[in-house]
Every structure is written in structure tokens, then in C-alpha cells.
């Protein structure tokens, strides 16, 4: 009997200590696990690296273009003496495209433009969309219905075409193109955020919190948002790639009239007529976009592996 009681007592002490420690170290341990999972994913790391390179490029061109010899960051510099595309050479590392624009120069400038506008689209579109979606799901009722119908209507038109039409109405410029894209993009986020919020709302632990008398605002902040925001954040990082691609696609089909603006899709379209004789003119700009989109996707996938609790075990 004595033996049994003594053992029991010791057990309880040990467990209590463990519980306390694990609570505090739990979060730190979680972070360590997250980072190690991410690092183990080599492709995600590669994606992160490439992404950083692109951002570095954009920042350099923005703040100190002279550093890499860029004169006019917002314009393409044509060379009408030599309009026909030239193959890559020491003078022109990526060759030139019609009309005589150095591709390396053009691409480096274009990265900054594309990234800047795409960030804008994603930031504005996603934020507005997510906010609307979360509130709509939380409030329910009439407002929810209205938001749903609104998004339904926007979804009834393929987004490329809708962006095209809206941008056309606003005016065919780079800036208006971004606004148009943001306007067509937010419903997607509204829906996504809404469904995430709804499914979290239904989870029993929310009911438990409500039953415990926790205020509605608190529930929103402490229980719902931490569960809803991470997947949205991941979706944003994945969509960055998609937005750059769509952005360049619109530019490619000629959205902006008389464009002299460095933009990857536009650069690609310049070389289109010479695709037989000068394939590099389309390959290089296209490759750059693809690499960026790939990097962002890998990065997003890696993040999703880390954050989605199911994938962890």
C-alpha cells in the first residue's frame, strides 16, 4: 500500500512539472518544428531564395538604379538604328528584341514594375476581399446573402475577360489595369475567407467558448482569426504568382496602347513577330516570369506544409 501511494505521488509531481514546462516551451518548440520542416523542404528554400533575388532586383532598381547601370527605370530604351533583335552577346547578355531594346536592361526594369503592381493588386484585392468575407461570414443573414450574390455575379464572367472589360472602361493604362485586376480579384478572397470563417465557426471549440460566456468579439479575435488567417495568408502568397502571370498576359495581348513601359508580358509580345528568327526574344522574358511564378508556388507550398496542421504528422 505504501509503495503504491508513494509511486502515485511521484508520478503526479513529475506530470505537473512536465505540464507547466510544456506549456511555455510548447510554443517555442512549435516554432522550431515549423522552421525545421520548412528548411527540410529544399524546393521551398529554393523558391524563397529566388523570390528574394527578385525582390532585391526590384528594390535596387527602385532606390539605386545606377548601381547596376539602369538609367531610366520606367521606360524601355529602343534603338532604332538596330531594330532587329540581336542574339545574346557580351554587350547584350540576353540579346535584344524589337525595336532594339536590350533584354537584360528591359527585364531588370520590368521585374520591378511587375512586382510592384502585382503586390498592389494582391494586397488591395486580398485584403478587401478577406475582410469582406470574414465579416460577411461572421455577421450572417442579409449581409451574407448580398455578398454571396455579388460574388456570384462577378464569378459569372471569366476573370481575364472581366478584367479586360473593367480595365477598358477605366482607361487602358498600367495603373488602371491594376485596379481592374484588384476589383475582379477580391470576390475570390471574399468567398475563400468566408468559407474558412464559416468552417471555423462551426467547430466545437467555438461553441465551447461561447458556452463559457466568452464575448463575441473575443471569440472573433482569439479563436477564429488565428485559424482563418494562416490559410488566407498562404493563399495570398500562392496567388502572387498567378497575379503576375495574369498581369503580364493582359499586357501581352496589348492592353496598354503605345507602351514603352518595361513589363514582362509586353516584352514577350515585342518578340512575337520574330519568333522564328529570334526565339530568345520571347524565351527570356517568358522564362523570367515562369521562374518567378514557380518560385512563389514552391514557397507557398512550403509554407502550407508548415502551417497546415494535418500535413505535419
Amino acid at each position: 500500500m505504501l509503495h503504491l501511494e508513494r509511486m502515485k505521488g511521484e508520478e503526479e509531481n513529475r506530470e505537473a512539472k512536465k505540464n507547466n514546462e510544456s506549456y511555455r516551451s510548447g510554443r517555442l518548440e512549435n516554432l522550431k518544428v515549423s522552421v525545421s520542416v520548412f528548411i527540410a523542404n529544399k524546393t521551398a528554400l529554393a523558391g524563397l531564395l529566388i523570390f528574394i533575388i527578385f525582390i532585391a532586383d526590384a528594390l535596387i532598381v527602385q532606390f539605386d538604379p545606377q548601381l547596376i547601370g539602369i538609367q531610366s527605370p520606367n521606360l524601355l530604351v529602343p534603338n532604332f538604328q538596330n531594330p532587329i533583335p540581336l542574339p545574346p552577346s557580351p554587350e547584350h547578355p540576353f540579346g535584344t528584341t524589337y525595336p532594339g531594346i536590350d533584354l537584360f536592361d528591359g527585364i531588370v526594369k520590368a521585374i520591378r514594375i511587375d512586382l510592384a503592381y502585382s503586390f498592389f493588386v494582391v494586397a488591395v484585392g486580398a485584403s478587401i476581399g478577406a475582410i469582406v468575407g470574414i465579416i460577411s461570414a461572421w455577421a450572417g443573414g442579409m449581409m451574407d446573402e448580398i455578398v454571396m450574390r455579388l460574388t456570384d455575379i462577378v464569378f459569372s464572367i471569366p476573370y481575364l475577360i472581366l478584367a479586360l472589360a473593367v480595365g477598358f472602361i477605366l482607361g487602358r493604362s498600367l495603373w488602371h489595369m491594376s485596379i481592374a485586376l484588384a476589383l475582379t480579384w477580391w470576390p475570390l478572397y471574399a468567398r475563400y475567407a468566408r468559407s474558412q470563417t464559416l468552417s471555423t465557426k462551426e467547430l466545437t471549440f467555438v461553441e465551447a467558448a461561447k458556452a463559457g460566456g466568452v464575448g463575441r468579439g473575443m471569440i472573433m479575435f482569439k479563436h477564429i482569426l488565428p485559424n482563418v488567417l494562416p490559410p488566407i495568408f498562404i493563399q495570398i502568397s500562392l496567388d502572387l504568382g498567378s497575379i503576375v502571370v495574369i498581369f503580364s498576359t493582359l499586357a501581352f495581348i496589348g492592353f496598354i496602347p503605345n507602351a514603352d513601359i518595361p513589363e514582362l508580358g509586353y516584352l514577350t509580345s515585342l518578340g512575337l513577330n520574330y519568333v522564328q528568327t529570334a526565339p530568345w526574344a520571347v524565351i527570356f522574358p517568358g522564362l523570367v516570369i515562369t521562374v518567378f511564378a514557380l518560385a512563389v508556388n514552391l514557397l507557398g507550398d512550403g509554407l502550407r506544409d508548415v502551417i497546415d496542421p494535418r500535413r505535419r504528422s
Binding site: 502571370v245 514577350t268 512575337l272 517568358g286 516570369i289 508556388n297
Partner: peptide, 9 residues
């Protein structure tokens, strides 16, 4: 990841 126009090209 490739834009459609790039696949076309």
C-alpha cells in the same frame, strides 16, 4: 506556372 502565351510560344 507558365503563362498561357508562353506555352503557346
Amino acid at each position: 506556372a507558365m503563362p498561357i502565351y508562353l506555352i503557346a510560344v
